[in-house]
């Protein structure tokens, strides 16, 4: 499986990373280099193997239903690049 320029652009758009036209070709070759190398996994016989999503061999621990957080609007907003009062602000979104 190798990426064509259109796929590189589509992936970049999905990832919300601006890629200029002159960046596409070098990126394409680097990504294909990595993907080509990853192809070796196709050699492995994985029949009947359950995927391992994490190394922690436990069940999920649950917490009690209590309000223990919040009420820190100022701290939550303190690092915001743009804000309006108690809101975060972004360029207007048109639905």
């Amino acid at each position: 499986m190798s990426l064509d320029p259109a796929t590189v652009k589509r992936i970049a758009q999905l990832a919300r990373i601006r890629v200029t036209d002159d960046q596409v070709a070098p990126l394409q070759s680097q990504l294909n280099g990595i993907l080509g190398w990853i192809e070796q996994l196709q050699e492995v016989n994985v029949d009947g193997v359950a995927p391992l999503t994490g190394a922690a061999d436990m069940a999920l621990r649950m917490r009690e239903d209590r309000v223990t957080d919040g009420g820190i609007a100022e701290k939550v907003l303190a690092n915001a690049p743009d804000r309006a009062g108690e809101f975060f602000a972004v360029p207007k979104v048109v639905e």
């Binding site: 996994l41 196709q42 492995v44 994985v46 193997v49 359950a50 995927p51 391992l52 999503t53």
Partner: peptide, 9 residues
Amino acid sequence: TRAQKVRAL
């Protein structure tokens, strides 16, 4: 999915 299976191996 394949990578996670290899991880299991």
